[in-house]
Computed example of a mutant assay.
Amino acid sequence: MELSGKSVVVTGGNSGIGAAIVRSLAAAGAAVVIDYVAHPEDTADLVKEVTAGGGRAIGVEADASTTAGIDKLIQTAVDEFGRLDAYVNNAGVEKRHSLLEVDEKTFHEVMTINLKSAVFGTQRAAQRFIAQGGGGVVVNVSSVHEDWPMPGNLSYCVSKGGMRMLTRTAGVELGPQGVRVVSVAPGAVNTPINAATMKDDSLRQRLENSIPLREVAEPSQIGDVVAFVVSDAAKYMTATTVFVDGGIMHGSVGL
Rank of each mutant, 00 (worst) to 15 (best):
M1P: 15
E2Q: 15
L3G: 00
G5L: 01
V8F: 00
V8Q: 01
V8E: 04
V9D: 11
G13F: 04
G16Y: 14
I21F: 13
V22D: 03
G29V: 02
A31W: 03
V32A: 07
I34E: 11
V37P: 09
P40T: 00
K48L: 10
K48P: 05
E49G: 10
A52F: 12
G55D: 09
A57K: 06
V60R: 01
E61R: 12
S65T: 01
T66F: 09
T67C: 03
I70L: 13
D71F: 02
K72F: 03
A77S: 14
N90S: 08
K95S: 07
L99M: 12
L99W: 14
E101W: 13
D103H: 12
H108C: 00
L115D: 13
S117L: 02
F120E: 13
T122Q: 07
T122L: 02
A125R: 01
A126H: 07
R128M: 10
A131N: 08
Q132I: 05
G133W: 04
G133K: 12
V139E: 08
V139I: 01
N140V: 13
H145E: 13
P149H: 06
P151T: 03
N153T: 04
S155H: 10
Y156E: 03
C157R: 00
K160C: 06
G162R: 01
M165P: 05
L166H: 09
G171V: 00
P176C: 08
G178M: 02
G178F: 00
V189Q: 09
T191D: 11
Q205M: 05
E208R: 07
L213N: 10
R214C: 04
E218R: 08
P219L: 07
S220I: 08
I222Q: 08
V226I: 05
V229I: 04
T238Y: 11
T238P: 13
V242Y: 12
G247T: 15
S252L: 06
